[in-house]
Design a protein around this nucleic acid. Sequence first.
DNA 1: TTTCTTAGTCCTGAGAACGAACTAATGGGG
DNA 2: CCCCATTAGTTCGTTCTCAGGACTAAGAAA
Lengths: 400, 400
Amino acid sequence: MGARVRKGDTQEIRRLNRRAILEHLRQGPLTRAELSRRTGLAKSAISRLVDELLQEGLLEEGAFTSPPLGRPGTLLHLRPRARFALGAELGVEGTVLLALDWRGEVLWAREWRHDPHAGPEERLDRLRQEVLPRATGALGLGFTLPGVVGDRLLLAPNLGWRDLDLRPLLSGFPLAVAMENDAKASALSEVFFHGEANLAYVVLSTGLGVGVVAEGRLLRGANGAAGELGHWLGPGERACACGRVGCLETALGLGTLLAHHQALGGRAEDLEALLHLARQGDPLALQALAHLGEALGRFLANLAVAYDPALVVVGGKAAEFFPFLEASLRRSLEAHAFVEAHRALPVRPSVYGHLAPAVGGASLFLARFLELGGLWAESPRRNGGRYEEVAFGDRRGLGA
Amino acid sequence: MGARVRKGDTQEIRRLNRRAILEHLRQGPLTRAELSRRTGLAKSAISRLVDELLQEGLLEEGAFTSPPLGRPGTLLHLRPRARFALGAELGVEGTVLLALDWRGEVLWAREWRHDPHAGPEERLDRLRQEVLPRATGALGLGFTLPGVVGDRLLLAPNLGWRDLDLRPLLSGFPLAVAMENDAKASALSEVFFHGEANLAYVVLSTGLGVGVVAEGRLLRGANGAAGELGHWLGPGERACACGRVGCLETALGLGTLLAHHQALGGRAEDLEALLHLARQGDPLALQALAHLGEALGRFLANLAVAYDPALVVVGGKAAEFFPFLEASLRRSLEAHAFVEAHRALPVRPSVYGHLAPAVGGASLFLARFLELGGLWAESPRRNGGRYEEVAFGDRRGLGA
DNA sequence: TTTCTTAGTCCTGAGAACGAACTAATGGGG
DNA sequence: CCCCATTAGTTCGTTCTCAGGACTAAGAAA
C-alpha cells in the first residue's frame, strides 16, 4: 500500500539541502556561489550548511578560482576518505573484498579463491576473518551473490545454494551488512559514480543476469528476482543449473561458448585459453565468439524491449571477450532492433571491470549515507554491543 | 545526469505535508487525530493544514466517530469531484473517453468506433470535438495509444502509425494533454486506486504489451519502450506487424488464437463468436483457449523473471476470455516458475475492465495533482490564451 | 456530578531559509 | 595610484512552518 509519503519538518529541509550540496559536489568541486546558483538556495543558507559540513570533516576547501572578473571563490571538495564502505563479491570461483571511498575510489582490494565445494558457513567465515581487521570506520559491508536475493537468499543455481537465511552467519560481523544480487550491485556501481540513470548491466559468465536501473532506481522486484533474464525460457533444450530446461543462459553462458569452440574443432581447454587464442587471432576462437556476439545482439534487442535502457554495460567474464564480440554483436543488435532508437543503443564494457560487483556492494552503503545526508550514520541501531543492522531486500531509494 | 536533488524550503514542507494528508485520505476517511498519528505530524499542524484544505474545497467533514471512550472525532473525506481529469484510449477498433474523479470514480464515459483507415488527424479531430464541451474544470486529458510513446509517438504497429509528432494536432484542445502507452496507463489505473506497488499489467488483444510498476513507479525506459514484451523475439517464424519475424505477439496475440481454433476445425469467425462458443462449452473453443493459456503461463513465468511483480493483471480482450484461460495458465505458470514464490504469483483480470487504459490516462493528471499537493493546478503555463502544457514522455514520479 | 479519556484549538518557541545590506577580493580604466 | 565595477561570501532581521504544551470540547462510566 502506498501511503508512505514522507512528512516534512524543519529537520527534513536541512537534510534535503545537505544532500543537495553533497550530491552536487559529487560531480566535482564548486564554490559556494556556484552551489547557490545550482541548488537555488540562498547564499546565506549555503554558507551555513557548508560551514557545518566543513566542521564535520565531510568537506574541505581547495584552490581558488580565478574568474575574469570579481573576487575569486574557494572551491569545495568532498574530503577524500571521509566516508567509505566495504564491498564484497562472493563469486562462483572466488571472493573479492574491497574498500570504496565515497568519491568512488577503490582504497584497497583483496581477492582469494576457495574450495569449489565450500558452503555458505565456510565462505562467510573466511570473509569475516578478512573483514574483521579492516572494518573500523566503514559505513557497512555490502556483499553480492550470483543469485536471487530477497529477504533471504532464495536461489543461487551456480553456487548450488537454495533458500538460505544467511542472517545467523552475519552476526559476527562488526558492522552493518547488506546482501545484494551481483548484477544489481554492478549496475549500481556504474550508476552511482557515472551518473547514467537508465542502464542495464549484463553480467555474463557461466550464468547470465541483468541489473536494471530505471530513472536512477534499481529494479529489484517483489522477491529480488527482477532482471533474471538468464532464466527466461527460450527455445533451447539444454538443462539449466536451476533445474529447468531451455533457460537463456544455457544458450548464452560462456560454458556453451567453450563447448561451441571445441565442437568447431578448436583446442582451447578453458576460457583463459580461448581468450588467449582470440588475442592471437585464432579463427576457430573468433568464429565461436562471433557466433556468441550474434546471439548476444539478438538478446540485447530483446533486453531493449523489456527495459529500454539508454546504455548497456557488459560485465562478468564476457567483458574480457568484449573486443571480439563487439562487431557481430552490434550488427546483430541493429538487425534485430525494435525501434529505431535501439539500433544506436550504446554497449560498452564495465568501468570497474571485475571489481564491479564488490564496488556495487559498497555503493549500497554510500548511497544510503548520501541519501540521508550524513544523519543516518550518527545513530546506528545497536543491540547488545553488536551492530545488528542487517539490511536485506527492502531497501528503498538506493542508487542516487 | 543525477544532480537533480530537490531542495528544501518552507513551502516544500507544506507541500510535503499537504500531500501526506491527501495521500492518507485517499485510502479512506480519517479524523484529524488519526491523521496526526499516521503522518507523525503534530495535531496542531494537521489542524492548520486541514483547515486550509477545507477552505479550498478539497476536503469535507463527514460523520462523527463513536469511540468506546473519549470525545468523538470528525471524519474527513476527499470531496467527491473536487478534482477530476479526462482520459481517452485510442484503440485499434475504437475510442473511449471518460472523466475520472480523484477518488477513482468514473463520472461518465463515451465510446465510438471509427473508420478502420482513419489517420491521426481524423481520430484526434473527433476526440477534440467530444472533449470540447466537457473539458471545463478538468485537470487535463491523458490519452493512450497501443504503441511506443516517447517524446513523440515512435511506433504503433497495430495502428500502422510510425514516428509521428502529434503535438500540432493537440493545440486545439482547451486543456493540458498528455500521451501514454496503453499498457502503461492501464497499469497506473490499477496502482493508483488499488495500491499495489509492484505489478505487471498485461494487455493482450491483437498485440501484446506490458505495463510494469515497480515500487510505485511506472517503468517507462529511455524511449518509452519498456515493457514491449510483445516484441521480444522468440522462436516463432510468423511475420509481425512491426516488420520483424518471430515477435512473441505473433504467437500469443488473439488473432493467432482464432486461427488456431479454426485450424482445429472450429467454426468461430471472429473473437466474439469464439467467446460465445467458449461460454457454451464448445470443446474446440476450449481446446484453443487451453492451448493459449498454456503458452501464456510460460510467458508469465518469463515475465516474472524479467520484472518479478507481486501481481499480474490481465487486460485487453484477453480479460474477457480469462475464465477459460485461467486453469491451464496457472498449471503452466506453476510448471515453469523460476523461484518458488513465482508459483503462487497472483493473476487476475483488470478492475476497470475495458476502461482501464482511459482511466489510466486520466490518472496521469490526478497523480500529478496529488504529487504537487494542489499547488500545480494554480498556475498552468499559458501561451497566447491557449493552454500549452503538453506533456510527453519525460514525466517523473507519476504513480504515487 | 465527578472523573477519565480522547478530539481538537491556541499559543509560544525553535529551526531553517530568504533577502537585503554589508564586507572582501580582484582587475581594469582614468 | 585611486576609483569603480564585479563577483564571493557573511551578517542580520524577517518570514514560514512545525513541535509541544496548555487548554477547551465532548462523550462515557462511576
